[in-house]
């Protein structure tokens, strides 16, 4: 009885949709038409047509961004956490500030960055001009679209920092005692003692950072909308366009299957390589 409402929500928003996505990816499916078409949708994903090119680009971008997230993004978050774990002056303020971009509306952040990088009224160009380069006028989201969009999430690893920081706080103090006896100090303690001990949380962070790129929508939709051309297209944005704008449901759901498959693959890989049994048993 107590379970019923949650199970209904689960069926309605997770179970039925995921089955629909799987099944209809084999159908030619639009508004009202639903005809079995075998692997046609999947075939067109890798064909030389516009759809094929868009899909390959979207998958490629998504994978590049996942790669950057699990390396640069996680490393930056861990580094900041190590710095904050020494409790320097103002460490709580830094922790709060760094977390802000992770808790405000991504749509709002998108519009903020769009303005920040605007060639005319943007702060970035404004500062460069104020520093002396008076005619500086780069249209960041057009001329360097991929780099600019990448920067708007790769550098903001506040969540990683918070997770690692909480884990460091739970390390028993005797460990550092033995570190001192071994004559270690500074970064050596971090490298040889702290990092191995927070390995599980780093694994969790890698999963979160990687799968976040399968959800990234607003920061692209609000700024480049995948452009110029298809330069900054990713899977969520392409699925949205195919499903809601072109109403090509079958095709959109075939892309959905690929997205889910990438997600499952990432989790399995990270579980196997980074996490110990403690994580699996919880």
């Amino acid at each position: 009885m107590f379970l019923a409402p949650t199970l209904v929500l689960f069926l309605l928003i997770y179970a039925v949709p995921i089955l629909t996505v799987g099944v209809t990816s084999f159908f030619d499916y639009s508004y009202a038409t639903l005809t079995f078409s075998g692997l046609d949708n999947y075939r067109s994903l890798v064909s030389g047509t516009l759809t094929g090119r868009e899909f390959v680009k979207a998958v490629g971008n998504t994978l590049i961004w996942i790669g950057l997230q699990i390396t640069v993004h996680v490393a930056l978050g861990v580094l900041v956490a190590l710095g904050l774990s020494r409790k320097p002056f103002g460490w709580k303020t830094v922790r709060t500030a760094y977390m802000l971009p992770n808790i405000v509306s991504l749509a709002a952040l998108g519009i903020i960055y769009l303005n920040l990088f605007d060639s005319r009224r943007g702060l970035v160009n404004g500062v460069i001009r104020a520093l002396g380069n008076k005619d500086f006028s780069v249209n960041w989201y057009v001329e360097h679209a991929f780099l600019t969009t990448t920067l708007t999430w790769t550098l903001f690893a506040g969540l990683v920092t918070i997770l690692i920081l909480a884990d460091i706080a739970s390390i028993p103090e005797d460990i550092y005692e033995s570190a001192r006896i071994d004559g270690a100090s500074g970064w050596k303690i971090d490298w040889y003692f702290t990092l191995p001990l927070v390995r599980n949380t780093i694994g969790t962070s890698v999963i979160l950072a990687a799968t976040s790129m399968l959800k990234e929508f607003e920061l692209i939709y609000m700024t480049t909308n995948g452009g110029p051309g298809i330069a900054t297209l990713n899977l969520p944005l392409l699925i949205y366009k195919k499903a809601l704008i072109e109403q090509n449901y079958g095709l959109a759901n075939a892309m959905g299957v690929v997205t889910i498959a990438i997600g499952v693959l990432l989790i399995v890989l990270v579980n196997r390589h980074l996490l110990s049994s403690r994580f699996e048993s919880t």
Binding site: V94, Y98, L155, A179, I189
Partner: peptide
């Protein structure tokens, strides 16, 4: 123990912390 870090190490870390703080706050303030 944790503050045993050498001076250049501490300076680099302070710069990094200042950098990410500015990066996060400046857009909102602006």
């Amino acid at each position: 123990l944790r503050q045993d870090a050498s001076l250049p190490e501490r300076i680099l870390m302070s710069l990094l912390l200042a950098f990410v703080t500015l990066l996060s706050l400046v857009p909102v303030i602006w």
